[in-house]
Design a protein around this nucleic acid. Structure first.
Length: 353
DNA sequence: AAAGCGGGGGG
DNA sequence: CCCCCAGCTTT
């Protein structure tokens, strides 16, 4: 038997073993079609895939229910105000996704007659949809064969075939291997099965190889080195930044601003700040004159590339809110603040009780 | 090719 | 505490 035939048989064995496992153990998720029955709703698949980018399933569930309740389809979402979409997204992170979500709904209405295109290449042209998401939607929502590769699948595949290059250099080899083992039919189920496996069994630390349906085919497991894959590049040290947020209150209201459309927390409602960035500490200068008193509260929040220690200055705000809008303190939960500023709000309100 | 971009859960 | 997650866009 030559190596090509062996490789094809092995690939078939892998996909058959995993799909059989999936038919019994698939996670029940709100955006997933019931096993073996109805077809998935493309709007639900798309929405969930955008929300799941760099985000865990547990974090997404509540937001998915909220969005489908507020906006049941592309038409309703496209008709919504962007500010409302951003506010509903508040707390989920990576806010460019919310802006692109809204833009994408518009393009589906204006260029695709209200229906998501089924072709992977056309999906790839829509805002917020990259290589992973285009493949996932084509395969899961439309039953097209597509090669789906996310971080879970990178881990599973790199272990299956003991791909020893460090990421991201290993990506082409991983994609090629995933292509080889992806079946012609049910590639969407296969991708979801691989992701379920990565989430529950083939975990980063302490993988459960003893119950893994792919263990008989897994090179890293056979070598006793599953946890050593994938090989990752060395991490960079995370910087500490300091900054100030300004709590300007007047008549039970607090002054909120809208952040710039680019950069950190782009376009989100926020407390005014002293121009801290990922690159440098704040300058300590208030955005407008008032009798500022520095509170002893410090809010600490960790972003991808730095940690921020944010102090909070308090003063009675100006009569005219030139810099933003006065928002009622008793409904700040509806302001759509990112988590950093929600922490600041909690700290101040607790102090004022 | 590398950097920028949130937040929360798990070990 | 560190690590990483159903990645995309911009530089």
């Amino acid at each position: 038997m030559n190596s090509v035939q062996y490789s094809d048989k092995k690939s078939g064995d892998i996909s058959a073993a995993l799909l059989a496992h999936y038919d019994v153990h698939a996670r029940i998720l709100p955006w997933r079609a019931a096993p073996g029955s109805d077809t998935p709703n493309p709007y639900h698949v798309w929405l969930s895939e955008i929300m799941l980018q760099q985000t865990t399933v547990a974090a997404v569930k509540g937001y998915f229910e909220k969005f489908t309740s507020l906006w049941p389809g592309f038409a309703e979402l496209a008709a919504a105000d962007e500010a409302d979409v951003l506010a509903a997204w508040a707390g989920l992170g990576y806010y460019a996704r919310a802006r692109n979500l809204h833009k994408c709904a518009h393009e589906v209405l204006s260029r695709h007659d209200g229906q998501l295109p089924q072709d992977e290449a056309k999906l790839l042209k829509l805002p917020g949809i990259g290589a992973y998401t285009a493949a996932a939607i084509a395969a899961i929502a439309f039953h097209r064969r597509a090669v789906v590769v996310d971080a879970n699948i990178e881990r599973v595949v790199s272990r299956l075939f003991m791909i020893g290059q460090p990421l991201p250099a290993a990506k082409p080899a991983i994609r090629s291997a995933m292509d080889r083992i992806t079946p012609e039919i049910r590639s969407g189920d296969f991708a979801q099965a691989m992701m379920d496996l990565g989430a529950g069994v083939c975990s980063v630390k302490s993988p459960l190889c003893n119950i893994c349906p792919l263990a008989p085919h897994c090179a890293a497991y056979q070598a006793g080195q599953a946890e050593q894959f994938p090989v990752k590049p060395p991490k960079k040290a995370k910087l500490l930044r300091r900054g100030i947020a300004y709590w300007a209150h007047r008549d039970g209201h607090v002054l909120l601003v809208r952040r710039d459309a680019k950069g950190m927390l782009a376009g989100m409602r926020a407390l005014p700040d002293d121009r801290w960035t990922a690159r440098q500490d704040g300058d300590g200068e208030p955005p407008f004159a008032a009798h500022w008193t520095l509170s002893n509260k410090i809010v600490q929040h960790s972003f991808t590339h730095f940690t921020l220690q944010m102090r909070i200055a308090v003063a009675e705000g100006p009569r005219e809110a030139e810099y933003g809008e006065y928002w009622p303190m008793n409904s700040l939960d509806k302001a759509g603040l990112p988590t950093l500023f929600s922490k600041a709000v909690s700290a101040i309100l607790a102090e004022r009780v």
